[in-house]
Design a binder for these strands. Structure first.
Lengths: 129, 129
DNA sequence: ATATCAGTTAAACCTCGGTTTAAGTCAAAC
DNA sequence: GTTTGACTTAAACCGAGGTTTAACTGATAT
């Protein structure tokens, strides 16, 4: 018997409200999810693993729509592996771009910080006259 | 006479629609902006420079509301420099966190890519039997 | 047996960050 | 003098990504 999780346990595990998991399910991000006798969602390792992937994709600004495409391809089976591979390779480039943009903007912010620090230090010196 | 720019020129310069610049103005992100005789916005180096800062902050997911706070402090004068400095230092940490999260998720994506590449290569080998 | 707790649904609601629309003004070109 | 082009406004609209609400079900504890 593989371990399973309730929606509450899963939500806590991922640090999201249960409503978010229900929203993802409604949007088709959690295929193959089963229900118990009382119609409650049963999260298996498969869902947990998929949710981890979904979090990586979300953390890197992939839209729900694109994630759904990826999940739909998983549902279609191994024949879509080349498509999934191409999607992830393209997305990896997006991630590189996101990081590069942030590093560039970080430089701009650091420049401002340096100017403000200089000003603050000069004011402090004047006071200590 | 310092060079000035129309909203159209400024929009093109920053690669955004004019409506975005009007929207920023309405939200208070462009203080000190003047108008010509025909009530058209006149963008000076001051606005251009502020827009560059705004772009850095937006590129690193600072909200319009926070950016407005920063701009309001600029309007208030040099007395708010310590507050601005503190805000930017806190924001710099946010940027570090954003980059770190993306690098972690990049690892996850790369792991998936490696698995898919392995699969694709194995399938290719089978075909070449 | 009844209260509590964890789950269920559909639908309404919300915020954010713009974008679009409609109607108008003004300067320059023809 | 009228058309064209670039600008102006207020207000309506939009898509993304959830969140909240209301009403309900079913299992467990007292």
């Amino acid at each position: 018997m593989a371990k399973t999780y309730t929606i509450g346990e899963t939500a806590e595990m991922f640090g999201v409200p249960e409503s978010t998991l229900r929203f993802y399910d409604k949007r088709g991000l959690l295929p193959f999810i089963e229900r118990d006798e009382a119609d409650r969602r049963v999260f298996t390792e498969m869902q947990i693993s998929l949710l981890k992937t979904i979090q990586h994709l979300k953390n890197t600004d992939m839209t729900i729509g694109q994630i759904k495409q990826y999940v739909d391809w998983i549902v279609e089976g191994d024949a879509t592996i080349p498509k999934r591979l191409a999607m992830l390779v393209a997305h990896r480039q997006d991630i590189y771009d996101q990081i590069a943009m942030r590093e560039a903007s970080l430089d701009g912010v650091n420049f401002k910080i340096a100017r403000y620090e200089k000003y603050v230090n000069e004011q402090r010196e004047k006071e200590n006259d």
